[in-house]
Simulated scan of single mutants.
Amino acid sequence: MPNLALELGEQSVALGVKSAYGEPLDVDGIAVTPVAITWSGFGAGSDGERDGGGGGGVAIPVGVYVRREEGLRFEPNLVTLLAVAVPFVWVTGRALVRIIRALKK
């Protein structure tokens, strides 16, 4: 059996930027390019008698680049922005409470 891990690694290198930036689309005369955060992992193994391998990946849409007559502009995905902002605000608030309590003592 050929080395499955090396073959999967070579295929994932080919994805690179293509997995984070989608193909530009033309929507009603406006050029739109989707943007995502992506990561993937692959693995393979053998115990002498059996071989196996697998992989997986995740893509989180973060927004689109929109090209209009006025120029290029990034428009974020509001759902992803909220999913990141809510925990960030919570952690920041907890940190500020602890800092204020420490300063009062």
Rank of each mutant, 00 (worst) to 15 (best):
N3K: 12
A83K: 04
G55A: 01
I99A: 15
G22M: 03
K105I: 02
V79Q: 15
L96T: 03
K18I: 01
G93K: 06
A102Y: 09
G93V: 06
R73A: 12
D28I: 00
V58G: 05
R98W: 07
G71L: 00
K105Q: 10
E7S: 06
G56Y: 00
F42H: 14
L15E: 11
G45W: 09
E23A: 13
P61N: 09
R73H: 07
Y65I: 13
V27Q: 14
S19M: 10
E49Y: 01
I30L: 11
V84G: 11
G29H: 06
R94G: 12
R98F: 02
L96F: 11
F42P: 00
P24F: 05
L96C: 05
G71V: 00
I60M: 14
A44V: 01
T38Y: 13
S46D: 14
I37Q: 11
A83N: 13
A85R: 12
L82M: 15
L81H: 07
E49N: 09
L15I: 07
S19G: 14
V89I: 15
V27T: 12
F74N: 01
G9M: 08
E23K: 12
G48V: 03
L96Y: 09
G9H: 13
I37T: 10
W90M: 15
V86Q: 08
L81P: 05
A95L: 13
V32T: 05
K105E: 12
D47Y: 01
G52H: 05
A83L: 09
P61R: 08
I37A: 15
K104C: 03
L72W: 03
G29D: 07
I37P: 03
V27R: 14
V91K: 08
D51E: 13
D28P: 00
L72A: 07
G55T: 01
D51C: 02
N3A: 08
A102E: 11
V79T: 14
R94A: 14
E75T: 07
Y65M: 15
